[in-house]
Amino acid sequence: MKGSFLGEFEEVVLLAVCVLKGELAYANEIRKEVEKHTARTINLSAIHSALYRMERKGFLDSQLAEASPRRGGKRKRYFEVSKKGFDALCEVKRIRESFWKLVPVSQVKGGTL
């Protein structure tokens, strides 16, 4: 069923929204959280694209906050993970864990499990 799986980047963004929850879960803070955990530089437009794509899929809900003078009258859009989004994260975790249980430790060179 198309649209029900998460890509790697979507998964990380969705996890960042879970971690931030509430009034901190807006695009720029989500970007910072993703960068902190992945040690990668992320373009803000990539975050926006992922957020809106996941909102269309039903994985996220959003709402606009009041405009503030500090932002020049612009409103922030806050995101939260929907039940469908949380269920998708749980399924990804289950799939990853089922694979990791099958990886023989002797096969891993230089890494640790």
Results as ranks from 00 to 15, higher is better:
residue 8 E to S: 14
residue 32 K to R: 13
residue 111 G to E: 15
residue 28 N to M: 06
residue 95 I to H: 07
residue 77 R to C: 05
residue 14 L to H: 00
residue 71 R to Y: 05
residue 110 G to A: 09
residue 106 S to E: 13
residue 72 G to W: 04
residue 90 C to G: 14
residue 54 M to H: 05
residue 27 A to Q: 06
residue 43 N to W: 05
residue 54 M to E: 08
residue 102 L to D: 11
residue 63 Q to L: 13
residue 110 G to D: 12
residue 4 S to L: 14
residue 97 E to R: 12
residue 18 C to A: 09
residue 61 D to L: 03
residue 58 G to M: 04
residue 61 D to Q: 14
residue 46 A to F: 08
residue 64 L to Q: 13
residue 19 V to W: 01
residue 71 R to V: 01
residue 28 N to V: 05
residue 73 G to A: 03
residue 19 V to A: 11
residue 108 V to E: 08
residue 34 V to L: 02
residue 9 F to G: 04
residue 21 K to M: 07
residue 23 E to H: 06
residue 105 V to H: 11
residue 47 I to L: 03
residue 36 K to Y: 03
residue 7 G to I: 03
residue 69 P to A: 10
residue 8 E to G: 05
residue 35 E to K: 03
residue 73 G to S: 08
residue 112 T to Q: 11
residue 50 A to C: 10
residue 96 R to L: 09
residue 84 K to A: 15
residue 88 A to F: 05
residue 31 R to E: 03
residue 89 L to Y: 06
residue 30 I to G: 04
residue 77 R to N: 05
residue 89 L to H: 07
residue 91 E to A: 13
residue 18 C to L: 13
residue 12 V to P: 01
residue 66 E to D: 12
residue 2 K to E: 15
residue 38 T to F: 04
residue 43 N to E: 14
residue 23 E to V: 04
residue 60 L to Q: 05
residue 109 K to P: 02
residue 78 Y to W: 11
residue 37 H to N: 15
residue 93 K to L: 03
residue 108 V to W: 07
residue 14 L to R: 00
residue 70 R to L: 10
residue 97 E to Q: 13
residue 95 I to V: 12
residue 22 G to Y: 08
residue 73 G to N: 11
residue 113 L to R: 13
residue 3 G to S: 07
residue 91 E to F: 07
residue 81 V to K: 02
residue 29 E to T: 00
residue 57 K to F: 02
residue 90 C to M: 12
residue 49 S to R: 11
residue 85 G to K: 01
residue 83 K to F: 12
residue 74 K to Y: 06
residue 89 L to D: 08
residue 62 S to H: 08
residue 54 M to W: 01
residue 104 P to I: 04
residue 28 N to K: 10
